[in-house]
Design a protein around this nucleic acid. Structure first.
Lengths: 386, 386
DNA sequence: CCTATTTTGTTTACCGTCGGCACAAAGTCA
DNA sequence: TGACTTTGTGCCGACGGTAAACAAAATAGG
C-alpha cells in the first residue's frame, strides 16, 4: 500500500491492483487499528448505478506523525494525519547559538506541545532540512543556511531529542525518526497528495532561499541514488561564462537561477526585512510591468529551462513540478518556460513534458510526515501492534 | 532471479537472499527445464571445510537466444547462452539500400543459419541499435548512423522478420523480440557479466562512432525513464562557447567528446579506411607521445569529466563504466579523468565514485541477449513450458 | 582410525498472501 | 416488481516461501 487517495474499497481494489477481497481485508485491518473509519451511510443519490460504496475516511481522532521543517529563519512543527492533512502546526524562530541539538530540541518540544494539546497517538517523526542528506548515515552534508557543520548527524540528533523529550509510540518506545532533504520530501508530498498524483516518473525542482534543489519520485518511491545524493542538480551548467560557483565551475544552476540571482538580474538590492523568496514573488506579481523585472524573469526562465532540459535528457520524467522561485517564474510566463525546455531537450519537441507548479502549501512539512508514515503504510500491523 | 553468476546452490542462497530450500528448488526447476546441469563430481581438494558444493553449470547444449547488433558498417548476429557466453557469431556487411526491413531480414537470416548449424533451441531474440528507442512503441528515434528514418518501428520490423524467417520457440510460435539502445543493453551486460557486477547504481557512458550514449542500471534493472529516453546524455553542456550542436545549443557532450571531436582536437583528418573509433584508439596507443595527441586527450578528458560530474550530481551512481573512446581516454590517463570527475561533482571529493573501463568484448551483443533472456530469468517455466 | 565439526543439499511441515468464486447487499433502470 | 449492476464478504485452495529436522560429504584433530 503506497497510495494516499483511496476513498472506497472499490478504489483501493483498482489502485492496488488486487481483488476486492484483499482490498476489503486491508480496509478491515486499517479500521481495526484505528487508522480509518468506514462510513456506511448512503451519501445521497450518487447517480451511479450499482450498490453504493462505503466511504473510507481517515479516522477523525486517529494517530498522527510529528513533522517538522527547519529553515534559515526558524522552524515549523506540525502534526500530520494519514492522508497528509495538517492537524496542528506551530512556528518557531531560531535563537542565536543555533547548533543542531539546540534547534531540534526546540522543534521536538514544540511538537510535544502540539501532541499534548491534541490527545492523539504519535506513530513516528519526520524532519525536512535544507541540505543533502547522506544515506544511510542520516547526516546533513551542506546545511549552509542553518550554519550547521557539514556532515552533522541530523538523524541521530533528531532521534536523540525525540527520546529525550519522550515522544512515545503505542509500544511505549520513542517513535522512529526520519530525516530528508526538503525538496526530496516535498516531491514525495506532491506525488501523494498534490500536483504529482499519478506520475510515474516525477521530477521536482525548487529554489527556496539560496541554491536549487531537485528530487525524483520513481514509481511512488523517492529516488535518492546510491548514497542519498541524487538530484543535487544545482551544479548543472546553464550559463556559459556565468558567475563563479563555490563548486569550482561557472554558470551553475545554483548561482544562476536562485532568488539572489533573480534580484541581481532585476537590478534590485535584496532587503533584510523579508525573505529573498518573498521579495522575488512580490516583484514578479507587482512589478512585472517593469521592463527590468520582466527581462530578469526571462533571463532566469532561460537558464532554468536549460537546466530542466538537461535533466529531462538524463531522467526522462513524465511530469515536472516547480517550487519556490521557479514556480513563480512559471506563473509569470508559462509558455516561455515550457518552450525553453522543449527546445533544449532532444525529445521534448515531440510530445513535451508537462511542466506544472507545486500545489501544496507546506509540501516539505507534509513530505516529512510521509517519511514517517511510510513504515505504517508498508506494514500497518507491525508499526502499530508491536 | 536476476543474477548471472551463481555457480553453486549455496551462492544462489546468498545472492537471492532466500533459504537453501528455495535455492535448491530453483536449481531443480532450471535443471528440469534443461537450462543448467548439476555437476556432482568432487572438484579435487578444495581446501575449504564442509561438504563440497555441487557446481551448477550452464547446460552445454542448452537453449540460446538470438542476439544481434547493427551499426554503421554492418551488423553482427550471434547465439548467446545463459550466462552471456557467445556460442556462435557471424558478421555481416550492409548493402546500399539499407532500409530497416532489408537489414534486419539479413540479420535474422544470419541468425537462422547459426541456429541451424548449432542444433540449439532458441528462446528469444534481442537487437541492439545505435539509437534511442522509445518505449513501449519500440521505435528508433534517431538512427542517424544507419540512415534509417526517425521513428522507424524497429521492434515491429525485427519481430516481422523473426516471424517471416521462422525463428520458432519450444511452443512452435515465433520467439519474442526485444530491441534496445546499444549503450543501454551494453550496460545490462556489464552489470550481469562484466565490470558492473555487484553495482547497485551503475552508470555507463560510451562513445562508439558519433555522439555519446549513457545508461543506468538500477538494482539490476535497466532504467529507461518514462518512455525509454532516459540517459540521453549527449546534450549536457560541457564546454562554454563550444561548437554548435544540432540540438540548438553549444558545447554539448555529443560534439565535444566523441571520436570526431578527438581527432579534430588532435589535428588529424579522419581517414575513410577504418572506423573513427579505431583511429582514436590507435592514436592514443601509438602516438600518445605526440604533444598534440596528448593535449587533445586531456582536452577531451576534461570535457568528459565535466559531463560525468554532472551525471554524478544528478544520479549519484556507485560505479561508472566507460566504453568506446571514453574507455581509451581512461586508459590513457586514469588519474586525470578521475580527478576531473571528483573536482566537479559536489560530493565526489569525499569518497569518490569508482570510474572503470568496460570489461566485455561485444557487450552490446551480450546485452541484447540479456534482453531476450530476461523473461526466462523472470519466469523460467512460463517461458519454456508454454 | 574414529569422532566432532562444518558446510551443503533435501525433505517435511507449516504459514501467510492472494486469487477465484459464490453469495449477499444495495442501489438504478425499465 | 423484477432484472441488472456494482460493492462488500466469506470460504477454499494454490503458491511461494520459511523454519526446522535430517542426511551427506568433506576437513580437523586426537
Amino acid at each position: 500500500m503506497h497510495t494516499g487517495r483511496a476513498a472506497t474499497r472499490a478504489l483501493l481494489t483498482a489502485e492496488l491492483g488486487v481483488t476486492r477481497a484483499t482490498a476489503g481485508a486491508v480496509a478491515a485491518e486499517l479500521e481495526a487499528l484505528g487508522l480509518i473509519r468506514v462510513d456506511t451511510r448512503p451519501s445521497g443519490p450518487s447517480g451511479a448505478q450499482g450498490r453504493p460504496s462505503h466511504r473510507l475516511d481517515v479516522a477523525p481522532q486517529g494517530p498522527v506523525v510529528l513533522a517538522a521543517q527547519v529553515h534559515a529563519d526558524g522552524f515549523r512543527a506540525a502534526l500530520v494525519g494519514l492522508g497528509g492533512e495538517i492537524v496542528a502546526t506551530a512556528p518557531g524562530s531560531m535563537t542565536v547559538p543555533a547548533d543542531p541539538a539546540h534547534v531540534l530540541g526546540a522543534v521536538v518540544e514544540a511538537g510535544a506541545g502540539l501532541l499534548r494539546g491534541s490527545g492523539r497517538i504519535c506513530l513516528g517523526a519526520g524532519l525536512a532540512v535544507p541540505s543533502a542528506v547522506a544515506e544511510p548515515e542520516g547526516t546533513a552534508l551542506n546545511p549552509l543556511h542553518l550554519a550547521w557543520p557539514a556532515g552533522a548527524p541530523v538523524r541521530d540528533v533528531f532521534a536523540g531529542q525525540i527520546a529525550r523529550v519522550g515522544i512515545l509510540g503505542p509500544d511505549g518506545e520513542p517513535v522512529a525518526s526520519f530525516v530528508g532533504n526538503d525538496v526530496n520530501v516535498a516531491a514525495l508530498a506532491e506525488h501523494r497528495h498534490g500536483a504529482g498524483r499519478g506520475a510515474q516518473d516525477l521530477l521536482v525542482v525548487a529554489s527556496g532561499h539560496r541554491g536549487v534543489g531537485g528530487a525524483l519520485v520513481l514509481d511512488g518511491r523517492l529516488h535518492t541514488g546510491s548514497s542519498g545524493l541524487a538530484l543535487e542538480v544545482g551544479h548543472l551548467t546553464v550559463q556559459p561564462d556565468g558567475r563563479p560557483c563555490h563548486c569550482g565551475s561557472r554558470g551553475c544552476l545554483d548561482v544562476e537561477a536562485d532568488p539572489l540571482a533573480f534580484l541581481e538580474a532585476a537590478g534590485r538590492v535584496p532587503g533584510p526585512e523579508v525573505s529573498l523568496l518573498e521579495q522575488c514573488r512580490d516583484l514578479l506579481r507587482a512589478e512585472y510591468g517593469d521592463p527590468a523585472v520582466k527581462a530578469a524573469a526571462h533571463t532566469l526562465i532561460d537558464r532554468l529551462g536549460r537546466g530542466l532540459a538537461g535533466m529531462v535528457n538524463v531522467l526522462n520524467p513524465d511530469r515536472i513540478l516547480l517550487g519556490g522561485l521557479h514556480r513563480h517564474l512559471l506563473d509569470a510566463d508559462p509558455e516561455a518556460l515550457r518552450a525553453v525546455v522543449s527546445d533544449h531537450s532532444l525529445w521534448g519537441r515531440s510530445g513535451g513534458v508537462p511542466v506544472l507548479a507545486c500545489a501544496l502549501d507546506h509540501n516539505s512539512l507534509v513530505g516529512a510526515a510521509e517519511l514517517a508514515w511510510q513504515p505504517v503504510l508498508d506494514d500497518p500491523l507491525a508499526a502499530l501492534g508491536g
